[in-house]
């Protein structure tokens, strides 16, 4: 049995989510290979070969693989899929985009957002916004999974010494073309990997207030900034800060929710955090039911006071 992990990378380095996925692949009781498909991605392939537990790196390099287009990346995975019992993707925007395409072309079902590997064919995954945990068994010959990265520890990024094998690149589908990319500038820790997250909701009132009140706290704690859907929809924070069922799933050591009521959909994204602090002036807010420490107070007074006392 051999498992193939599809690396998420920016052609220069391997993204953290790949490391958690390698851990899940090792839990399937298998030899682990990593596929790095990209353009001028030799550095990423070299980094993948250093990951502890990886026995081989497959490297496909071509211009049409540069931007991770689903059509071309799926074709590349298909080209090597025959030899693998498990094909694992991190459950990121990119993994979720490509994994079902690969599964359908192999005529197998796909398992989304796996949080636990019980055996080589049995897995746990959350359903209904994390309000229930299903144990599921796949009868398919090849198991195609996306891995919820917060469910698995990261494999060590160094210590491995896998051989890198070069693959012929799959042909361009010709059906899609990459246009442009607009990545929000952010010198904070990445939201899904941060140890501490400071998150704001609708009560922040405006983008200016959001930044003015929460930025000093995040700076002081070295934290990433997150937001509820209400705050994102109101334009107080960028879309990719959204934590929840339809945004990012996070599980930091400390999650500080400021002015967030705690709708089911938001809780789905953060209730696996180790310690949750809620600051809200509404004593009835549902967020208090999951918080380890609840402070019923006006956040515009409490948050600056918190910054001063740190």
């Amino acid at each position: 049995m051999t498992a193939l992990v599809i690396a998420e990378h920016d052609n220069a380095s391997i993204k953290g989510a790949t490391l958690n996925t390698v851990t899940a692949a090792l839990a399937c009781g298998a030899d682990v290979h990593v596929l790095v498909a990209g353009h001028n991605a030799a550095a990423a392939a070299a980094a993948a070969s250093q990951i502890a537990g990886v026995s081989k790196v497959l490297h496909a390099d071509a211009a049409q693989l540069a931007d991770g287009l689903a059509e071309n990346l799926a074709a590349q995975v298909l080209a090597v899929a025959g030899g693998y019992s498990h094909i694992l993707f991190p459950s990121t925007a990119s993994g979720k985009n490509v994994a079902p395409r690969v599964a359908a072309l192999l005529d197998v079902a796909q398992l989304s957002d796996v949080t636990k590997v019980i055996s080589a064919d049995t897995f746990e995954r959350p359903i209904y916004a994390g309000n229930a945990i299903a144990t599921v068994q796949s009868a398919d010959a090849t198991k195609v999974l996306t891995v919820r990265t917060t469910g698995f520890d990261a494999a060590a990024a160094s210590g491995g010494s896998a051989a890198v094998e070069t693959l012929a690149a799959a042909a361009d589908s010709g059906r899609s073309v990459f246009g442009s990319r607009e990545i929000a500038k952010n010198d904070r820790p990445e939201l899904t990997a941060a140890k501490i997250i400071v998150s704001g909701g609708r009560a922040m009132g405006s983008n200016e207030k959001f930044m003015e009140v929460l930025t000093p706290l995040a700076d002081k704690l070295g934290a990433a900034l997150g937001a509820s859907r209400a705050a994102v929809d109101a334009g107080y924070a960028p879309n990719d800060w959204q934590v929840g069922q339809t945004g990012k799933i996070v599980a930091p050591q400390l999650y500080i929710a400021c002015g967030i009521s705690g709708a089911i959909q938001h809780l789905a994204g953060m209730k696996d955090s180790k310690v949750i602090v809620a600051i809200n002036k509404d004593a009835e807010a549902p967020i208090f039911s999951v918080a380890d420490y609840s402070l019923e107070a006006d956040l515009f007074a409490a948050v600056p006071e918190l910054v001063n006392s740190l």
Binding site: L69, S94, G174, R175, F178, I183
Partner: peptide, 14 residues
């Protein structure tokens, strides 16, 4: 225009 981790990207589909 697609919402991806970290921002937005545009793909053109035939």
């Amino acid at each position: 225009t697609r919402e991806v981790d970290g921002g937005l990207e545009v793909v053109k589909l035939t």
